[in-house]
Design a protein around this nucleic acid. Structure first.
Lengths: 335, 335
DNA sequence: CGGATTTGATTAATCCATTAATCCGCGCCA
DNA sequence: TGGCGCGGATTAATGGATTAATCAAATCCG
């Protein structure tokens, strides 16, 4: 194995010079351009690669950040991950991904990662993780940025859910719908205000229309639950003429329930989903969605984590704006 | 930060003892049960965690394996990843995931990971990576197991695609279909035999039926391509009465093309897809699939990599059997 | 001209866990 | 009694990069 020492010997300089040449940071070491050239040449000739273990032992920094996402295969989160990866990578770091489903109580993957000093910091999605785990990380002095709306406690970043749902709802109102359902999303513990529900009401307020009551179904994201919720809504006396799906991932379940009830989209019921992913193009009919700047959110979170690792604590951030309606074929004026 | 030395002091022993107590491997060091107890206690009291950098500097091993998958959000691969994760984790290791899409030519993430010595070995999916990259890794002496059928060159593991497609096709033949299309999958370079096409023909042979010619469309996995292929098939003089979708991920595009043509599933055309994922339950109609032991394949690959890292080279493996038809509502006898 | 800077480097300590080599005392056997 | 073996530990070298402290020579400046 080629060590830094070997390179130094070959270039006829001391290890300190080679180290400085590699890292860019010169510290106390200065070198002429000629020397730098010689070092670089020696590196190329020997095929030298820095030993990551040695470096991070010395510097007490790994250059690795970990992200724990609710579900890797969730295409919504894919965009966030992409933003994180791009940012981390362009900062010269490496991203370590974990699926929250791997975190069985006994595996303690998180603390294992953190404890073993494999990782400089974490990006986590609150909902799926539990505040206790996050607090545990904080207790271990592990820098941690939360991918979610601000909670006043942890540094956090997320898109503006409120504006996103408002955008979806406004679209339906503008088409003339009045009985609009909001399906999916978590039932928050009393006290925590649901930004999505707020956005839903914002839209009605903005349109000067009284919000349809009893049409909010925060039944989570499991397909069977969504399906049941929609089926039940359709069975009421005044069924909705349009549905806002909180999170595009549940849209197939919404379509399913409608198809099962013999209703056509958008002739009988319009559907808009929150978040935009590639596959909605191939749903039948193609699904109208609201696109959010998820990639930017990921990148921003990664940046925030970097500064946090360097010691500068930030607060909660919501990325303003960026909500954009992508009209496809699943919405139309009510019959 | 608590070091091993601190623990040793607290327990009143030498660092060597603590190290032995932690790793289990005793080497030259022996200790009484009483001492072991004291050490463990000291570890608990101090909250000591081993310094990963120091350990891997000394042992020249990181305990990290990397997997590069075609697309993280691909739910098919999710199963494979799960298998890998479980195995790696139960071996005390850590999994590092990368999406092949991150590997732009200039980022050279792979070689970066490998070169920086962050990783003991790689699991890669051949198709998406290119043989050159794999060879480069080999040249760097990085242990590498390929997730794909054997090619006589690299150690590899995969499920039996041939048997899987045979299973799907046989199901359709048993229902009475005769004009069956196989849509999706890569067009292999001449010379490489396509195990999926072989499985397709196996089924016809087994049923004693002449295979329908001209109904193979290896147009890749992009939705627009799939859609076009199906649309074209439907426009021929003798359109297929059933379709085998090579890879469940393209099934929505198949449904789309059929819906667009005004055809109903399964009344007008039956559809079976290769690989089984949770979301097919909510397609309308629920999609019949073939389930493969993907999780086992992932676990097996991880095990193989571990032995490879320890120096024992293995050959190509195909997991025998395990193909299982999951009948839902997208298949029926031809009209 | 002589002290102060600047340029261009070197030396050596340090990070922390692992492990081969070594050591001590005790019991056992011939 | 001397030597051997063994249980139970310790010592110290090692891995490779970083960086504060230091140094020699060249340059500058009043």
């Amino acid at each position: 194995m080629v060590t830094l020492r070997d390179v130094a010997e070959r270039a006829g300089v001391s290890p300190a010079v080679v180290s400085a040449a590699i890292s860019g940071r010169s510290g106390n070491v200065r070198m002429s351009e000629a020397t730098r050239q010689r070092v670089n040449e020696a590196i190329r000739e020997t095929g030298y690669r820095v030993n990551h273990a040695a470096r991070s032992l010395r510097t007490a920094r790994t250059g690795v950040v970990s992200a724990v996402v609710p579900k890797l295969s969730n295409p919504v989160f894919e965009h966030v991950i992409r933003g994180i990866q791009d940012q981390v990578s362009s900062d010269g770091g490496v991203l370590m991904l974990a699926d929250a489903e791997w975190l069985t109580p006994d595996s303690h993957l998180l603390t294992r990662l953190a404890a073993r000093g494999m990782t400089d910091g974490f990006l986590v999605r609150r909902a799926q993780l539990g505040d206790d785990t996050i607090d545990a990380l904080e207790a271990m002095q592990v820098p941690c940025v939360v991918l979610a709306g601000p909670d006043g406690t942890h540094p956090s970043v997320w898109v503006d859910d409120r504006a996103g749902i408002r955008c979806a709802t406004s679209h339906l109102l503008a088409l003339g719908h009045r009985r609009i359902a909001l399906v999916g999303g978590l039932q928050l513990p009393a006290g925590r205000s649901d930004s999505r529900l707020l956005g839903f009401h914002d839209a009605f307020a903005e349109a000067g229309v009284a919000a349809s009551a009893d049409l909010h179904r925060p039944v989570g994201y499991a397909h069977p639950d969504i399906r049941r919720a929609v089926t039940e809504l359709l069975a009421t006396e005044q069924p909705p003429t349009a549905i806002v799906a909180d999170n595009v991932t549940v849209a197939p379940a919404v379509y399913f329930a409608l198809a099962e009830a013999g209703l056509r989209v958008p002739e009988d019921v319009s559907v808009v989903a929150y978040h935009d992913i590639a596959t909605v193009d191939m749903m039948w009919p193609p699904l109208t969605t609201v696109r959010m700047p998820l990639r930017e959110a990921g990148a921003q979170a990664a940046r925030m984590l970097t500064t946090l690792i360097e010691g500068e604590r930030a607060g909660g951030t919501i990325l303003e704006g960026g909500a954009e309606l992508v009209a496809r074929s699943s919405t139309a004026p009510p019959a």
